[in-house]
């Protein structure tokens, strides 16, 4: 590998990592609010991408209308899921809820194949495709734009949580639902909002990924790879997720450079198996001390 290759693949990996961090943010939000690792997150991405595809390609609407429709439809989907699946399971062991999200993923995947078929579809990217040059490295335009957008969204969330009233309330619910409730914070409503936010993030990520790789029922697999990112980031830490996203993105890109693109799909999984052996709590997560 030449130095230029190394440099270029590194940058591409970091850009990809930004996208992973964005998807990871959706996981972290839900985890912080409900202690649930949502295995259906990737399927939310896929549904978001299909909504966008339906609006722009099938119905011929302009991109901004497509984005609006996709966000709206995803929000409705998330609300429905919260009402029909999550709320009835409140008070059940976490493991039940986690398994329910696995079931949910299966339902959404099957539904997508039923409705849109198993084929791949192309959607027009919203952002310009023209590559960027950073020194001698040529970077795909979509990836650069995607990275920028992801960074802005993540930054927005960080600021929201730190300073806005609603954000503080959500943080309170996450840390201590009972006390939050007694302070007049509506915990179920916050859970619903969290799921909607996560779905919106997934939709944006789904559209970006869909534009880069085509839209297919398998688009949600990216979500599974990102589970690795959030685990590595410690599950409940946004900075941890960002750094873990960048690390996984970089390792993935370098592995592709060295071993060819065949290994891409398993790199994050191989990495997490190795890392668990070395650093069990992820990079940043808080080891939980249960109160007796």
């Amino acid at each position: 590998m030449t130095f230029l290759d190394f440099y270029e693949y590194s940058l591409i990996g970091l850009l990809l990592g930004g996208l992973y961090a964005l998807i990871g943010l959706g996981f972290v939000l839900v985890y912080k609010a409900t202690r649930v690792l949502n295995f259906a997150m990737g399927e939310f991405m896929m549904m978001g991408a299909y909504f966008y595809f339906s609006a722009t390609v099938l119905m011929g609407l302009p991109w901004w209308a497509g984005v609006g429709i996709a966000l709206g439809a995803s929000a409705v989907l998330a609300l429905g899921v919260e009402r029909l699946v999550l709320r009835p399971l409140v008070g059940q062991p976490t493991i039940s809820i986690v398994m329910a999200t696995i079931g949910l993923a299966s339902i959404l995947h099957g539904t997508a194949v039923m409705v849109w078929g198993a084929d791949q579809w192309r959607i027009e990217p919203i952002v310009p495709r023209a590559p960027f040059f950073l020194g001698d490295a040529m970077l795909p335009g979509q990836l650069v734009w995607g990275f920028g957008l992801a960074s802005m969204i993540i930054l927005g969330f960080v600021l929201f949580f730190r300073y806005a009233r609603g954000g503080v309330a959500m943080r309170a619910t996450a840390t201590d639902p009972h006390t939050a409730m007694s302070l007049g914070i509506d915990a179920p409503r916050n859970t619903a909002i969290t799921w909607v936010l996560a779905a919106l993030i997934s939709t944006i990520a789904g559209i970006m990924v869909g534009a880069m790789t085509n839209v297919s029922p398998e688009l949600g697999l990216v979500g599974l790879a990102v589970i690795v990112v959030v685990i590595l980031g410690g599950l409940d830490s946004i900075p941890g997720t960002i750094i873990a996203g960048l690390i996984i993105g970089w390792i993935e890109s370098m592995s592709v450079a060295v071993f060819g693109s065949g290994v891409r799909e398993i790199v994050p999984f191989a990495v997490i198996l190795i890392i668990m052996m070395v650093r069990p709590f992820g990079l940043f997560g808080t080891p939980e001390i249960e109160r007796l």
């Binding site: 699946v85 009835p88 399971l89 059940q92 039940s96 398994m99 329910a100 696995i102 079931g103 949910l104 993923a105 299966s106 339902i107 959404l108 995947h109 099957g110 539904t111 997508a112 194949v113 039923m114 078929g117 198993a118």
Partner: peptide, 24 residues
Amino acid sequence: VVYVSPLREIVFGALIVGFLIFEP
């Protein structure tokens, strides 16, 4: 016939969710 496999996925998922909610 093309619906066999997605239908199966939907039914499996629905069984998981449904039993967890209604008959854990």
